[in-house]
């Protein structure tokens, strides 16, 4: 399948890329292309110009930055999944990356591309919101740091302004007593999440001191289950408190998305089951960490 014709640019610097985006109205950023190119082949997306950021130096790689770890926008999923630094310091992210698509997709797809595309069934958004990650973007007016929670605005819609490009994602280093887990029910063909749950918990002296539970795949953007926090914080993490927290999922999404593969009702049910398992796994890991 061929996409519509477009103009193609391969800038060497971010400033150049930003200027090109501004000059060519409706131009799109191309990184790994694993969200954008399929959409263009189906002509769901028909940009008149593509700005390929693949040749810009310094946009790829994983490095410690103070109390956070920075992941460059064009870092591919396979690299995140295999990163020893992340496995040690923020294991939720490599666990999530390893579940994206398949081997070939993980060799090309990028973290920046995935989040800028903001597919409601993508894996990174759910995990990044649960982690309290920060998205770093650069545009004509300089750099902005956007909390992941505010970055995902709606279906395929982010807080990016015209001319802005995602340059990195910052994730917090998890401390002692922190446990996390990302679980999904993958669509058997596309491997996108039919439903997903990410849990990040802190345990001190056998009592839960923080519980961040986020579900994905059921609505336009990742949904934070705020009431799960109330059900868990200050309590001993056991089957009763975890069950009570996960039960909040069903009540939370009044109008879940459904499609030919899975009804909204089924997705929410899956999400609540995954939430329970993710919380249990996160608490188990917190005990060991």
């Amino acid at each position: 399948m061929y996409s519509e014709s477009f103009e193609y640019f391969r800038p060497k610097t971010l400033a150049e890329a930003s200027a090109l985006l501004k000059k060519h109205r409706g131009a799109r950023v191309l990184a790994g292309g694993h969200s954008l190119l399929p959409a263009m082949k189906f002509r769901l997306a028909t940009p008149k110009a593509l700005v390929d950021i693949g040749a810009i130096k310094g946009l790829s790689g994983i490095a410690a930055k103070g109390k956070a770890i920075g992941i460059g926008a064009t870092t591919v999923h396979a690299e995140v999944a295999a990163s020893k630094l992340l496995q040690r310091s923020c294991p939720l992210l490599p666990e999530t990356a390893a579940q994206i698509g398949d081997v070939q997709v993980r060799n090309r797809g990028t973290i920046g591309g995935s989040i800028a595309h903001a597919d409601p069934a993508a894996d990174y958004p759910t995990a990044l919101v649960a982690l309290g990650a920060t998205v770093v973007v650069r545009g004509p007016r300089g750099e902005r740091k956007i909390p992941a929670e505010d970055f995902f605005v709606d279906l395929f819609t982010t807080a990016l302004k015209p001319g802005e490009i995602v340059t990195a994602v910052l994730v917090p280093v998890s401390g002692k007593g922190t446990g996390a887990a990302y679980l999904k029910h993958p669509h058997p063909a596309s491997r996108y999440a039919v439903a997903a749950a990410a849990a990040v918990v802190d345990v001190a002296n056998g009592v839960c001191s923080r519980a961040s539970l986020v579900i994905g795949g059921v609505s336009a953007t990742p949904v934070r289950v705020l009431k799960a926090q109330d059900a868990l914080v200050g309590k001993k993490p056991d089957a009763a408190s975890i069950g009570a927290a996960a039960a909040q999922v069903e009540a939370l999404v009044p109008d879940p998305m459904g499609d030919v593969y899975a009804s909204g009702e089924f997705r929410v049910h899956l999400a609540s089951v995954l939430a329970k398992r993710a919380l249990a796994a996160a608490f188990e890991r917190a005990k060991k960490g």
Partner: peptide, 9 residues
Amino acid sequence: KAVKSCTML
């Protein structure tokens, strides 16, 4: 690295 050549320009 293995990649899908239908999803790359």
